[in-house]
Amino acid sequence: MPNFVRLIISFALLGASVALFIFGHWGWGIPAFLLAIIVFVTFFFNENMLIAQYFLRKENMEKAQQWLDNIKNYEKQLIRAQHGYYNLLIGLIESRKAPMQSEKYFKRALSLGMTMDHNVALAKLSLAGIAMAKRNKREATMYLQEAKKADKNKLLADQIKMMQGQMTQMDRTIIKGGYR
């Protein structure tokens, strides 16, 4: 459902609840007002995205993919601030199936922008992992440094340290293997 329809429905429900309050039907006015608030909140936070995030936290990728598939045209169904998060969620799901294919989603998520720093750090950390898999040390180091800067609350500090350890281990295998 397009966002402007959600706004129309929420304002219609708000008007109906005000009318119910005026005519003294408080028992019906309060639930109508709460329903108007819920519909208005879905303008900013798409319910499909919220449910997909829930299933991602529960490690159920199939269900998360199903809920994200309900969004047919994300540019019309989501507000501009959610476009980056939509691509981040798709990238996280794709990284489980085909890690190299998820790179374009993470890059698109970063280019569209995200407001939360830890999500930016997550996207850059994922791109660093993809660059390491491609044996591109310079790009991986750059993404790791950017992820470290973006992770202000140190939510991904352990993953960043682990990735840096893997990078030094990758250097040792290259030197021992004679690829220097």
Rank of each mutant, 00 (worst) to 15 (best):
L68V: 00
Y143Q: 13
Q159E: 12
K104C: 02
K97S: 06
L155D: 14
L144Q: 09
Q53R: 14
Y85I: 03
Q53V: 11
T141Q: 11
L13R: 01
I8N: 00
K107G: 04
K72M: 06
S17M: 04
D151H: 07
N119E: 13
K76M: 07
F44C: 03
H25Y: 10
F43R: 07
P99K: 09
N60I: 12
K154N: 12
K124G: 03
R172P: 09
A133E: 13
L144C: 09
S95G: 02
S126L: 11
R96V: 06
K154Q: 05
K104H: 01
M170F: 15
A133Y: 12
T168V: 14
Y179Q: 13
A147E: 07
F33Q: 02
K154C: 06
H118S: 14
D158F: 04
T141V: 08
W67C: 01
L68G: 00
K72F: 08
Y54A: 06
A121Q: 13
A64W: 02
N60Q: 15
Y105K: 07
L56M: 14
V120F: 02
W26G: 08
S102M: 04
E75D: 09
N46Y: 07
S10E: 00
S102R: 00
M61H: 13
G177C: 03
N153G: 00
M49S: 01
L56E: 12
A52S: 09
Q65P: 00
M163A: 15
L122F: 12
F21P: 00
H118P: 10
K104V: 10
N153F: 10
